[in-house]
Design a protein around this nucleic acid. Structure first.
Lengths: 151, 151
DNA sequence: AACTTTGTTGAAAATCGTTTCCATTTGAAA
DNA sequence: TTTCAAATGGAAACGATTTTCAACAAAGTT
């Protein structure tokens, strides 16, 4: 197998491939969670004490701009990141967010119907408002069973 | 006509009706824009120099918790607020956000289809994940015509 | 009317995720 | 290797939002 799948995309944009970037990307690839910049820092720090938090923020910016990573806001005042689907990346999903404890559930139910409708809408909106639509966001908010119980 | 429609909801929760709250609510009711806390402060400040920014933040919290106001994040690092539909409030809509200039377009196209699908999904997700769903968010992101032109 | 309880307020200070600055290091093309 | 823009870490700056705290005001209670 050749070099990691994302390196091509990297080179094409004048970006360099560095250890920090590789480590950060791998961290995101290996988790199911929705990590914040600091989460990533903590995951990495033992093995790579020389990678600073600033670099993580900068790298996440780059990755987001490249479309390799999605940035989310789940209401807990910090950005959270998720690998966009790569070759064998996670399947497309949306989020169900608990407003009580900020837990996030990924769901794929109805994804097809959602995406189908979204594409239809995108087409209409593009034309009507002259937007070039690149992305969409769907999230549901509510209370998870535990938070309902806690009152 | 009786007292403003929202006062009932207010009293029922032990909240008091104050000038600040009335002014802030009226400001939101009179605009088409998506105002930030500071925007509201600026709108108000000439006529009500005694209403501080802190009060605005606090009031917006209260209004959001009461469900009278929705809080949005359009990616410009500050919360923006919009009156929830009241008696003759704005009709239900979703947002189209320009990632270039952060302009926001309200659209109502397909709203019925969107809401219908969302309700279906909500029902399934509620059951499957034990969530009590209270809210949803749909947004499209892209470049407005002006920002496309600017390259 | 005086008192009490409790919600509300403004100003200033604190918080905290994120960015910026800047001197130094590093990747990769020539 | 030489070269040079890109990338980095640490410290300082930023900026929206929250917290603190003492003063205030609205309803109820005597």
């Amino acid at each position: 197998m050749g070099p990691p799948w994302w390196q091509a995309k990297f080179r094409g944009c004048g970006y360099r491939i560095t250890i920090a970037r590789e480590v950060i990307l791998n961290t995101l690839a290996k988790t199911e969670d929705h990590l914040s910049a600091e989460d990533i820092y903590n995951h990495i720090h033992t093995k790579h004490p020389n990678i600073g938090l600033t670099t993580i923020y900068r790298t996440l910016d780059v990755l987001t701009n490249l479309g390799l990573v999605y940035r989310f806001d789940f209401g807990d005042k910090r950005a959270r990141y998720e690998l966009a689907e790569g070759p064998k990346g996670a399947h497309h999903h949306h989020h169900l967010v608990c407003t009580g404890c900020n837990r996030v559930v990924d769901y794929t139910d109805f994804i097809d119907a959602e995406v189908r409708l979204l594409q239809e809408i995108e087409q209409v909106l593009s034309k009507k408002y002259g937007f070039k639509i690149t992305n969409h966001l769907i999230q549901f908010y509510g209370l998870c069973s535990r938070c309902q119980a806690d009152g």
